[in-house]
């Protein structure tokens, strides 16, 4: 399965971006502020229609797929998810089943249970979201996306505002999803996280792709100096790299 962008352009945000993403991989989209990362993710999720160019899901145009069908295949976790009503964890996770037909089914039940259990939220299922910690809230929102059982999982800065343990738990979940054959695409600001956990990194700079490839190539020190304008040095062993800045 592939999700690809062909010459995708959005005025002032993206100019002629082309890339093809494969399922079974964890791809990180990195870049400085205003590089167009979230815009690209929104185009790939089918939420923003590009002014020029096309987004293809497998071989079909994403824009031609009806909303509910698209939602069943692409799960999207926004940057700062809001929760308007004080619903319980279980009700929130069940919202992930909205793209599927209305009838409550065994499949729906099983998907919600599996999502709650994958995010270790089963014991808090009846708790209102207002009484969750930041980490529990992030896991619940992630469980909502998993409950849809999408082929693709797109998340915009999912680790922002999470402490070390919760961020590590969430990134493990993304890795498991990729291992299970799903396509995972994350917008990440934490370059060390992208370096250590992604299979592929796409670096965006001012709406263009500045680098695309395995993390050690796409995030090498030259690219970081050129795109972010800082002379960083990678320290440590592969898988445990840390970026040291002057």
């Amino acid at each position: 399965m592939t999700l690809s962008a062909q010459d995708v352009t959005l005025a002032g945000r993206l100019s002629g971006v082309s890339l093809s993403l494969r399922s079974g991989e964890l791809t990180a989209i990195c870049g400085p502020n205003g590089a167009g990362k979230s815009s690209l993710l929104a185009c790939l999720a089918g939420l923003t229609a590009p002014e020029a160019g096309t987004v293809l899901l497998d071989d079909g145009k994403l824009a031609a797929i009806p909303g509910a069908m698209r939602a069943r295949r692409i799960g999207y976790l926004p940057q700062s998810p809001q929760i308007a009503w004080d619903i319980s964890v279980e009700v929130l996770v069940s919202l992930g089943r909205l793209p599927w037909p209305d009838a409550p089914s065994e499949t729906a039940r099983a998907a919600i249970e599996a999502a709650l259990s994958a995010m270790d939220m089963g014991h808090l299922r009846h708790r209102p979201v207002s009484r969750l910690s930041g980490g529990e809230r992030a896991r619940t929102l992630m469980a909502r996306v998993l409950a849809t059982r999408p082929d693709w999982l797109l998340a915009d800065e999912p680790l922002a505002s999470l402490d070390l343990a919760h961020a590590s738990g969430l990134i493990r979940c993304f890795r498991d999803q990729a291992k299970a054959g799903h396509g995972v695409v994350l917008v990440l600001h934490d370059l060390a996280c992208a370096m250590n956990h992604a299979d592929r990194v796409v670096v965006l700079d001012q709406g263009h792709i500045a680098a695309d490839g395995p993390p050690h190539e796409a995030l090498n020190e030259d690219v970081i100096a050129r795109v972010w304008g800082v002379n960083g040095r990678w320290l440590g062993e592969p898988g445990f790299r840390a970026l040291s800045l002057p």
């Binding site: 909303g67 939602a71 998810p81 929760i83």
Partner: peptide, 20 residues
């Protein structure tokens, strides 16, 4: 009703859940 449920999570999440 179901579209309003999806809106609980904000505009972007609702659209990603198939709401027009």
């Amino acid at each position: 009703g179901r579209s309003l449920d999806a809106l609980t999570l904000g505009d972007a999440a609702a659209r990603s859940l198939g709401v027009d």
